[in-house]
């Protein structure tokens, strides 16, 4: 794949998280995976009340403590100490995954390695490492009503992560609804992948060049507003 865009502007991790957070609707229960997704908790749009779920057994928690502070018995899935808020509720692991797999969560946001045009997700095994961790990824991929993936558009070697068919080990089939990358926002639909937004300085044609499947450019396709 072409590397002629190597030096072009990309959204940074925080900005991708900010874009992801715009998807949160008032009243949503949301699970944020580790990496870029957890950053999205800082950007809940003003006026919307969102409840965060963490798979280690909590619904409703506040901000992350600075290092060294906080209660070791209260952490998020990334092991960061978080704050108790009015409404916080704890439960065991079985209950936590009943919440996940019983389709009770509105949104799950995870990192990704590859997303296929049908919405298949690969995100737990980097082939070069040979050994990976499934953790809660397979459950979160199929469990939430809406799965959003936040990832870079291409690999370090400039290979597309938006692919016709995943070549990495799969996490789940036909599960991804929206992909937020460092250059685009793409919706997965029954008709195919729809390019909704592109990063400043990019064009839909350029995003297409770095994507394997044919992208349908949405009639209202626009630059990501930051």
């Amino acid at each position: 794949m072409s590397d002629k865009f190597k030096d072009k502007f990309r959204l940074d991790r925080q900005t991708m998280a900010l874009r992801v957070a715009r998807e949160f609707q008032d009243g949503d229960c949301v699970n944020l995976g580790i990496g870029i997704p957890v950053l999205a908790s800082n950007y809940v749009p003003a006026g919307r009340e969102v409840i965060f779920h963490s798979e280690n057994g909590v619904l409703g928690f506040g901000e992350v403590h600075t290092a060294g502070e906080g209660d070791p018995d209260f952490v998020n899935a990334g092991g960061q100490a978080v704050t108790i808020i009015p409404g916080t509720c704890f439960f065991d692991h079985h209950e936590s995954f009943s919440i996940v797999r019983g389709k009770h969560l509105d949104i799950s946001v995870m990192g990704g390695l590859q997303v296929s045009e049908k919405g298949d997700l690969a995100n737990w095994l980097v082939p070069e490492r040979q050994i990976g961790t499934i953790g809660g990824a397979m459950d979160l991929a199929i469990g939430a009503k809406r799965l959003i993936i936040a990832m870079n558009h291409v690999t370090k070697d400039n290979q597309p992560r938006i692919v016709k068919k995943c070549s990495y080990e799969l996490t789940a089939l036909e599960c991804v609804k929206l992909v937020v990358t460092d250059i685009a926002v793409i919706e997965v639909t029954k008709k195919g992948m729809v390019l909704k937004e592109y990063a400043p300085t990019w064009t839909p044609e350029e995003v297409q060049e770095l994507s394997e499947p044919k992208l349908i450019v949405a009639p209202d396709c626009k630059e990501i507003e930051l």
Binding site: G57, V58, D73, V75, I84, H93, H94, S96
Partner: peptide, 12 residues
Amino acid sequence: VYRRTSRTFNAT
């Protein structure tokens, strides 16, 4: 009884 998120797999 457990404390906060230390319930997790223990109670399960």
